[in-house]
Simulated assay, not measured.
Amino acid sequence: MTATLRLAEELIARPSVTPDDAGCLELIAQRLAPLGFDCQRMDSGPASFRVSNLWARRGTGQRPTLVWAGHTDVVPTGPVEAWASDPFVPSHREGKLYGRGASDMKTSLAAMVVACEQFLSATPEPAIDIAFLLTSDEEGPANDGTVVVCNELQRRGERLDWCVVGEPTSVERTGDMIKNGRRGTMSGKLTVKGIQGHIAYPQLAKNPIHMVAPALAELAATAWDQGNAFFPPTSWQVSNIHGGTGASNVIPGTVVIDFNFRFCTESTPEGLQQRVTDTLARHGLQPGTDFDLAWTIGGRPFLTTPGPLVDAVRAAIMDVTGIATELSTTGGTSDGRFIAPICPEVIELGPPNATIHKVDEHIALSDIEPLTRIYLGVLQRLNGRAAQAA
C-alpha cells in the first residue's frame, strides 16, 4: 500500500458529509506541520452549520506561491443499502478503491500531501512557498468555506501565484483533461404580478402567465454571446415555474419563474441582467409595477490561459502518463471561482469523475500513483522556474 493510498483510505473512513469535516483537516494538518507549514484554522458559520477551513503556508510569503486547494466534505451517500460495501469503509474490488469521496476528492487531497512530502524531502530549501487552502463546505452552500479564507487572505495581502484545485477533472485516465477555467453562474427569481380572478371572467382579471409568456419565448431564443476559444456560448435556462392555486377555474395572481445563466467571459452579470430587464420591458412589463426580479450571482467565470502553471501541468502529465492533456472549461462551478480573483493562475486537476456523487463511488488503483507523481512534477517545475528567475 502506497503512502497516497493509505492516506486516502484514512480520509475516506471519516464520514465528512457537508459541513462536518469529521477530523479530516486535523489529520492533514498533522502531516503538514512537521514539514514546516504554519497551519491556521479559519472556521466559519453558525453553530448549526459550522464550516471547517484550513490555511497552511510554508514559507515567508515573499516568494512565488503554489496553492493546493480542495475540500474534505462529501455529498450524502444516499441509501446505504444500495452500496456494495459501507461507503465509509474503504474497500478494494477488481482493482478499484471504493468509498464516498474516493474520486471527489479525498484521493486528490492525499496525493497533494504526499507529493509535498516527497518534494520537500528531496528539496528542503525550495525557491517557492507552498500553501494549502482546504474547506468542508464546497459541496454545500459554499458561503463559509473557501470564500471566507480568500477574503481574509486578500485582507492580509498574502501572495498567491498559482493554484491547483484537486477536483476530479479527468475522463478516462488521470491527466487526460484539466480545467483551465469555469463558466460563471447567475440565477434569477422573476415574480410577475397579475390579478387573480374567475377563469370565466378574464376581463376582470389579469393573467401573469399570459403576460410573461412572449418575453419568455424571446429569452429562450436569445443568443447572449458567441463564446470564445475557451468557452461555449452563454446559456439561459428556466428551472422552475410556479403559478396558480391548483384549481382549474382560477386565473393566478402571480407566477414565479426561476432561471439560471451559465455565462462565459464574453458576458458580464450586469450586462445580462440589463438585457433581461430590457426584454421584459419590450413586452410591456415594468419593474416594480408588473414584476419583481431578484438576482443571485453564484460565481463569476475565470480563465487561465497557457502560461507557467498550465505549461507545468501539461509537462508533468506528459512526463508521467504520456498524455497530451485537453484543456476544458466545461462542467459546473468549483471553488476556483473564489480563488481566481486573488490568484492569477488557477487550474483544476484530479482523477476520473465518472462515479462522483454516485452509489459505489470509486477510483481505479492505477490512477492514484500517477496523480501523486503529476502533482510532484508540478512542484518541481514551478520550483525550477522560480529558482531560475531568482
Rank of each mutant, 00 (worst) to 15 (best):
T268I: 03
R173Y: 14
L349G: 11
A69D: 09
T2C: 04
T18A: 01
E81S: 10
L309V: 01
G227N: 11
P19F: 01
D278K: 10
S16T: 12
R282G: 07
Q196R: 15
K106F: 04
V148N: 10
A223Y: 05
A247F: 05
S248G: 07
A324I: 06
F37G: 12
M1K: 11
Q196H: 10
P301C: 15
H92Y: 15
D278V: 13
R373E: 13
R182I: 15
F259V: 01
E152P: 11
A29H: 08
L382A: 10
G299F: 09
G307V: 13
H198W: 14
G101A: 06
R6K: 12
D21F: 03
P34R: 07
V17T: 04
G23Q: 07
P287I: 11
N151R: 14
Q40R: 04
D161I: 02
P370G: 00
C150S: 09
E361G: 10
S16W: 05
P64E: 05
T296C: 03
P351L: 08
H92L: 14
D360G: 02
R173D: 12
P34Y: 07
H242R: 12
S366Q: 05
C39L: 10
D104K: 09
R262I: 13
D161Y: 02
E167P: 08
L219C: 02
G181I: 08
W55E: 07
A390F: 08
P306D: 00
H71N: 05
E9Q: 15
V320T: 06
A142K: 01
Q388V: 08
T296N: 06
T268S: 13
L272I: 08
S136I: 02
D335Y: 08
A281I: 03
L153M: 15
L7R: 06
E369N: 00
R300K: 12
L134K: 11
A364Y: 13
F88T: 04
A56F: 09
A13D: 13
A56S: 12
T325M: 07
L190R: 01
P126F: 03
V238S: 01
G45A: 09
G384A: 00
E369W: 00
A22L: 00
K106T: 02
W162R: 11
V80Y: 00
A142P: 01
A3K: 05
T65N: 02
S366I: 09
L35H: 04
E9Y: 14
V192K: 08
P168M: 11
I347P: 06
R100M: 10
G350A: 00
S248W: 13
E10C: 11
K206A: 11
A200W: 14
T4K: 04
A47W: 00
F230L: 11
